[in-house]
Nucleic acid binder design. Sequence first.
DNA 1: ATAATAGTGTCTGTCAGACATTATGCG
DNA 2: CGCATAATGTCTGACAGACACTATTAT
Lengths: 227, 227
Amino acid sequence: VQPDEPDEWRDDADPAQVAQQSAVSIDVVALRFWHDDDTVMLGIARRERGPYRGRLALPGVLLRRGARLADDGRRAIVTKLGVPAAAILAVGQLVTFDEPNRDPRGPTLSIAMWAVIGEHADKTAALWVPLDESPILAFDHNRIIDESRALLAAKLWTDLAFTRALIGTRFPATRAVKLTAVLRGGRPDPGNLNRAMSLLPGLHRTDERVRVKSTGRPAAVWAFDPR
Amino acid sequence: VQPDEPDEWRDDADPAQVAQQSAVSIDVVALRFWHDDDTVMLGIARRERGPYRGRLALPGVLLRRGARLADDGRRAIVTKLGVPAAAILAVGQLVTFDEPNRDPRGPTLSIAMWAVIGEHADKTAALWVPLDESPILAFDHNRIIDESRALLAAKLWTDLAFTRALIGTRFPATRAVKLTAVLRGGRPDPGNLNRAMSLLPGLHRTDERVRVKSTGRPAAVWAFDPR
DNA sequence: ATAATAGTGTCTGTCAGACATTATGCG
DNA sequence: CGCATAATGTCTGACAGACACTATTAT
């Protein structure tokens, strides 16, 4: 048996086999867009141990044996950001980063994921910064954020689970404008956005109007259909 | 230190740490579309060892420590399909599959990749089947193919590296119709496809005409601009 | 009234699908 | 000529960007 093909004779009981692999970490781009946030916020935390100790980083964990990616993504959020599990509204997969030297401890893949965090009593274990103003982070995390932003922008108004989790089930039209502006960069035409939203299945405008700025015409309230 | 956060105290010299992770395999959707192929062919091979021995499967290997995903994808193609490395024209990442029970040896992630195989003296170590007629395969490989097809269809005419590798640098328009029909399902309107191709940067039609069917008008030859 | 904000309507150009028409070859 | 195949042209509807106009509120 050639060493070229370890998978064929892999003995699952022998940890040395699998130890010949790169490690796998899950790093999460955790977003929130609460009522009093006026931009999309990114959750980061100061590293308490390991390399880059004391530096800011995305919440991440080593993949646990037998775990689903989404579950380990949630675990990263809970343990590193201090966010209660119930506040994690949605999770999804992005891409895998494979630069061999991205982690000083040795070769480590990073499977990037996105998550949306709902409102909860903030224990401030996490640091929340505007998504477009993230500071210098540990590892290649700034690169992860950069590449993820385009993917997240594409999800807005197309991935309904993502969008609904981020903006909520009921929201004034103005919120939609702001959210789109942040993720896509540059404010959208409000008329065009209204048109696009009205064509979305599962989303409709209500008769309710709401005042968001102290002056001016109140905004219409949009709502996702109950699931 | 909680066992919840093994990444923080991970000692790279200790293989037992990383052995607590799921294994990671690279499984490749290897495609070819040679001159005498009249559909896109998928490369599969009979498993000679391990679980599902004797069954057909996508070429796959265990991720090797410190390797780039693309390099290990190429290694899977070389070792499992017998394709010379020089014939691998392009490789790219698709998605990661994480069902914990997809491999009987234990929890194993599968990072799915695509690859395009160029013409070479076929040693017939590989079995080539039409992409839309793949037989029952080992593991969850049929599912991988199903989910990959949509992604591959989206890459056609948008991911130029993928498209160019698959159809070649010079090709009659009829080939483009056939390729699009296979990947997208259902033949495209030839007029619309011509229009789309003429708008593609890096692709242009030549004055050359070529007979592909024995009867009828000869087809125009299209060519990618030299890189 | 005026300013500030929100929503509507319209015009434009782009683009994809569909289809009819023309072109090029062979027997 | 008739047949098979390939290419062109045109029509339509969907849709996005841009922008002008109208609507609703506070001061």
